[in-house]
């Protein structure tokens, strides 16, 4: 096993599935194995039903009811998250590793101001008072390039556009300076110019903090332009993994090849 310190996340032979009414496990993940090196921008790519999101949720321990892991290990900085004391794991979530979800406006609570929600996260993880938490929240909004952060603090999620809401979610995820940030389809549903802005922002934040990012996406274009390590999944299995250049330029797996040509809208001959 590679427990060397330059591996942030090491997922080994992870299997799991949903339990049906006869207590049979319907497999969703089968022997999923990959690792992410410190400081890279990694990506897990796949179509719907490939298991990419459930893999990410398993890492965070946020899998939906009915889903259970049947085998495997998830090591974060060498420690197995699955056998770890739950209190320790909770502590790691947010500080060690954090996650940004697809639909930012749905992920925000509609009845509290955005500023309140970011300050709340700051207060949970850091020992600071209300006023200091608010100040830090405003600073975070500024860091994710939300214009007029002081005014935006007092607004509710419905007053935010999709792109601005995703920035607010990033601010929240960054509140505790995580070492690994998992982004589940962070730009799906956003217009291409907003998508490009958010991806640029993520790259800049990453460069400034040195954190590792793992992007979950179906869009190979986004991967090719933003990532340096890629895991391709299909139907709960890892089809191929390697450097971005290797996967995009010289794929060996037939599914990966097909996915690339479909994404480029060219015919495979």
């Amino acid at each position: 096993m590679n427990a060397s310190s330059d591996v942030v996340l090491d997922v080994k032979r992870l299997s799991g599935g949903f339990e049906d009414t006869d207590h049979q496990i319907l497999p969703v993940l089968t022997d999923v194995t990959f690792s992410i090196r410190r400081g890279v921008s990694a990506a897990i790519v796949g179509e719907s039903g490939s298991g990419k999101s459930i893999t990410a949720l398993s890492v965070l321990g946020l899998t939906p009811a009915g889903f259970s892991l049947t085998a495997g290990q998830i090591r974060f900085e060498g420690e197995d998250l699955l056998t770890m004391d739950p209190a320790r794991r909770r502590k790691l979530s947010g500080r060690g590793l954090s996650m940004v979800f697809q639909d930012a406006r749905a992920a925000l609570n509609p009845v509290f101001t955005v500023g309140w929600q970011i300050a709340d996260v700051v207060r949970i993880h850091q020992d600071v008072g209300r006023r200091e938490a608010r100040r830090r929240a405003e600073e975070l909004l500024d860091r994710v390039r939300v214009p007029e952060p002081a005014r935006r603090m007092k607004q509710y999620p419905h007053e935010f556009s999709g792109g601005m809401a995703q920035r607010a979610m990033l601010a929240m995820a960054l509140a505790c300076q995580p070492r690994l940030l998992i982004l589940d389809e962070p730009t799906t549903g956003l217009d291409v110019t907003i998508q490009a802005d958010i991806l640029d922002l993520i790259a800049d934040l990453k460069a400034a903090s040195g954190m590792t990012t793992c992007l979950i996406t179906h869009d190979l274009g986004v991967v090719a332009e933003n990532c340096d390590q890629v895991v391709v999944m299909q139907q709960g299995c890892v089809r191929e993994s390697g450097s971005c250049a290797q996967i995009i330029n010289t794929p060996t797996d037939p599914y990966t090849k097909q996915l690339i040509s479909d994404s480029r809208l060219v015919e495979t001959s």
Binding site: T193, Q195, A196, L220, G221, A245, S263, R264
Partner: peptide, 25 residues
């Protein structure tokens, strides 16, 4: 120009020079 330069292509290391517009629509 801004719209076309923002669309990602499935090509490695071809992050094109983006034409940026200020703010949002």
């Amino acid at each position: 120009q801004s719209l076309l330069s923002a669309a990602p292509l499935v090509e490695v290391g071809r992050r094109r020079e983006r034409v940026r517009l200020a703010g949002e629509i």
